[in-house]
């Protein structure tokens, strides 16, 4: 893929960070206030806190590692390999 394109892993990283922060914050709030959602099992394990952190950590890693950078001739590490840009109006594949 082309150097200036944003990696899919960056999108995933950002979403995981936001989700992790929201869920962990909700978990911390439950933990502090003791106001747990009724009918939910195993609330004393405080899973929102740990799961939020577990989502956020890889999210942070991906967001930083694959952050958009302007580099000439760079490879976007998004699962898209470096390849020359196809010419406009190139013949269609068979």
């Amino acid at each position: 893929m082309h150097g200036s394109r944003i990696s899919i892993w960056f999108f995933i990283g950002v979403l995981l960070i936001v989700y992790g922060a929201m869920i962990a914050a909700s978990g911390v709030s439950e933990w502090v206030t003791g106001n747990y959602a009724p009918g939910v099992e195993l609330v004393r394990l405080h899973m929102p806190v740990w799961w939020g952190a577990l989502l956020g950590a890889p999210g942070l890693f991906y967001a930083v590692k694959f952050r958009p950078r302007k580099r000439v001739g760079a490879v976007a590490h998004d699962g898209a390999a470096q390849k020359p840009s196809p010419k406009p109006n190139a013949p269609p594949p068979r």
Binding site: G79, A80, A81, K83, P88, A90, P92
Partner: peptide, 22 residues
């Protein structure tokens, strides 16, 4: 970045094994 036939219908044939596999 999806203006040619190869881009639009075959994703430019530029996915790595991990992305294509997932």
């Amino acid at each position: 970045v999806s203006n040619t036939g190869e881009d639009f219908f075959l994703a430019g044939r530029e996915m790595t094994a991990w992305i294509a596999g997932l």
